[in-house]
Nucleic acid binder design. Sequence first.
DNA 1: CATTTAGTGAACGCAACGTTCACTATCGAG
DNA 2: CTCGATAGTGAACGTTGCGTTCACTAAATG
Lengths: 197, 197
Amino acid sequence: MTDSTASRRRGDDLERAIFEAALEELAEVGYANLRMEAVAARAKAGKASLYKRWPDRAHLIRAAARYKATNVDTAFEPSGDVRADMKRVMLRIAENQAGPSGEAMRGWVGELRATSDEEEAEKIREAIEQPRIRVFAKILETGIANGTVRPEALHPRIVNLAPNLMTQAFLMKGRPASEAIIDEMLDMIVLPLVSSD
Amino acid sequence: MTDSTASRRRGDDLERAIFEAALEELAEVGYANLRMEAVAARAKAGKASLYKRWPDRAHLIRAAARYKATNVDTAFEPSGDVRADMKRVMLRIAENQAGPSGEAMRGWVGELRATSDEEEAEKIREAIEQPRIRVFAKILETGIANGTVRPEALHPRIVNLAPNLMTQAFLMKGRPASEAIIDEMLDMIVLPLVSSD
DNA sequence: CATTTAGTGAACGCAACGTTCACTATCGAG
DNA sequence: CTCGATAGTGAACGTTGCGTTCACTAAATG
């Protein structure tokens, strides 16, 4: 926990501590209630150290989310059972949405117009979608290889469908889709669309 | 500045003026930048008159959005051409998202957890979804009647699919889906799922 | 016309923002 | 090892927007 022989941290060391603090705050009070002073206090840092690094709350939180995304295990090997694989990944997305990353995204969406840095926004969107596209494309490819999936299903709009449904559900309901809802998404929408029979 | 023949409005008369002002502000500066003082000034009303009616910004904006929703022409008669009907409605949703209602929704989503009045949230969700469900259900029913749509397509998850895709696109991109994207949604996802052939 | 009801506008206290500054711990070059 | 340069601290500050209060006044009521 806290070191009583407190040394004064600098550089990346301090930066990481701030990120961790921000993520914890995000998880606890949510984006809308996150206070810079609270993050600073939690990280045992001065407010000035935050503002030296990021111009405002939105930037700090985006940076923290990026930090978390890079430090998370994203490895995935498809089993060949398309439904099971998709479900597994969707449950993982749900877990993720329930934590600080979900809050970061909610806040980002809420300020999407205000910020309106179209360049930056596009990069964030890509950072969110790219990993998902890769995983779902892999699942579909495996399905195509073993004949359970139509080859035409490998289109970005369809590859993105499942994660997009997850996003929609999360944003509109305020919490991630339950397992029951994921099952419905799969059986009523995604699988009928991609299955080869 | 102040009109010498200034009549002082009251009740619903004043309330409408406040709603109009709020909607104009929403359209101009967006949810995140909307200031209560600006709304009051624009409506030529006192800030106290706003706070007498609604406890805070979020409530005022929700009320304004509701006000607009009830004063909008929602009539729709399906032509029997399912694709054309759906496209027409989706374009109307896009138009709507581009205006103050879209901003209201973005703001609501951004604060969904902070507000966290689960009761109220559910009512708002319903108010958004109900009219859409009715319209798309009608379109699908007509399609079922003339044999172009599978009867099993009349399931809430599928009925809601098109509007949900519109919502997802709007929230993540910051602006409504273009016509080209709507075409893709229809041809790659919605129609393959509901068509009877 | 008198009384009650409702809106105005200005002032207020408050919370959080983002900035500044004097002070201090750590780093690294010589 | 010493000393200057670099980076962090913590407190104070001005500012903005919130939501409230109050003395005043216009409109409705009867």
